[in-house]
Structures are given as C-alpha cells and as structure tokens.
C-alpha cells in the first residue's frame, strides 16, 4: 500500500499540495483526478523522490526508505526519460542493467504488443510512440506498484485503446496502479478508486462501483459536482 499523509508542497509561491492524504492499495487501480496543475504529477513524483515535499510523509508498504523503493515502484512519466540518442534497445538494456526486478521476456512481449522497433532512436519517436515505450519501461519490471502520469495525454485513439488493454490485462493484476489524468472519460470503467483533488486537498475519495451502485452516478458526474462549484 502507498500511504500519503498530509502532503504539502509549495511551488513558485503557490500551495500546490495543501494537506493531501490518501491510500493506493495493491491489486487496485486508483486514479488521481484533478484539473491541470492540481498537483497530481507532483504527488507521483513525490512518491518517487523526484520532488521533495515541504511537509508530510509517504510510506510504501510501511517503509520510508529509498533504497529498495525503486525495485518496488515503477514510475512512468509523460516522457521516455532516456537520452535522445539512445536506441530503444539501449534503453531496455539500461533497465536490465540497473534493476533486479527487470523481466526481459515481458519487455520483449510488450515491445511486440506495442509494435515498437528496438532500433529506433528515442529522440525520433512521436509522442504516442514515446508513451508506449515509457509503458514498456515501466511495466516490464516485476514491481509491486506502477505510477502512471497522464498516460493518455496527446495520444491518438487507437493507441489509447492499446493502453486501455494494458490496464485490463494481467500486467496490472496483483499490482497497485496509481494513474493521474484530467480526462477520465475513457478509462472510468476500469478504475477501482478515484481520488479527486481540488485546491491542493482531497475533495472526494470514492469507490467507483459503489458510487454507481448507490448513487447512480458516474465518476464524471462526481467530478462535475466537485469542479463546477
């Protein structure tokens, strides 16, 4: 379980996170929802230690240390995070070299699934292809948690379908997934939980199926309630 407690973050004078608390459980797909600049990316980066918090704690399975964190948690940012001159196969090799949890067989399967050419150079990839490569890098490792930052932004519909398939397959089963997006429409039915951020705080933290069951509302409906006021 990833447990974020009372996270605060100031960025350029603005309070991006103002006391955020929530949990992301293993075996569930949790979505962080919010408008642009709401602090979703910041939270994911904070979990990964890429950005320091002003205040608050983040615990992954109860521990706070960084050493083993990166074998447990994968991060998929909204770019490939590899030198532009690298070929894709060099990027894969990098992961193999540094991570014990890397699974080369699954990496090959994913490369084939996404129809990626290992000889291409990272710098020449289109946004959609780079996003797919990012998914390969993040999902081919046997990590317990996967953090995805805006996996759907700027990507064409068919690529989105492929990515959506990834959510439903065994790639995501038994792992904890924390996704951020500001366009919830297409993936709503895939989510277990949704955490809605507003003004740096958690406005709603809901079980998606429960809200549909009990209130007859979609997550999008809840979003309207939260963000239109």
């Amino acid at each position: 379980m990833i447990h974020i407690q009372d996270a605060h973050k100031r960025y350029r004078g603005r309070k991006v996170l103002d006391g955020v608390t929530f949990k992301a459980e293993k075996g569930q797909i949790t979505c962080l929802v919010g408008m642009n600049g709401a602090g979703k990316s910041t939270l994911l980066k904070a979990i990964m230690g890429l950005v320091p918090l002003s205040r608050g704690t983040i615990k992954v399975d109860g521990v706070q240390t960084k050493r083993e964190l990166y074998e447990k948690v994968s991060f998929i940012p909204d770019h490939a995070a590899m030198p532009g001159g690298y070929r894709l196969e060099e990027g894969l090799q990098f992961m193999d070299d540094y991570y014990a949890s890397w699974n080369p067989t699954r990496a090959d399967e994913l490369m084939a699934f996404f129809q990626l050419n290992a000889r291409d150079r990272v710098g020449n990839l289109s946004k959609g292809t780079a996003a797919k490569f990012g998914l390969v890098l993040g999902l081919a490792a046997d990590t317990e948690f996967v953090l995805m930052d805006e996996p759907f932004s700027g990507i064409d519909v068919f690529s989105r379908e492929m990515i959506g398939e990834v959510f439903s397959s065994r790639l995501v089963e038994e792992r904890g997934v924390l996704v951020t997006t500001h366009e919830i429409g297409e993936i709503e039915y895939l989510l277990d939980r949704a955490v809605l951020l507003k003004d740096g705080k958690v406005a709603r933290d809901i079980d998606c199926e429960q809200v549909r069951d009990e209130d007859g509302k979609s997550v999008l409906d809840v979003m309207r309630e939260v963000y239109r006021t």
Partner: peptide, 17 residues
C-alpha cells in the same frame, strides 16, 4: 475471471465481483 477481464478489457476486480 482473468480471461473475461482481458476479453472484455475491464478491471479484473470488477470481473471478480
């Protein structure tokens, strides 16, 4: 359960339910 989740492209937890 897993197969249906994959076939219908849905969350495995939902399939379980």
């Amino acid at each position: 359960r897993r197969e249906i989740a994959s076939l219908l492209k849905m969350n495995p937890n939902t399939a379980q339910r």
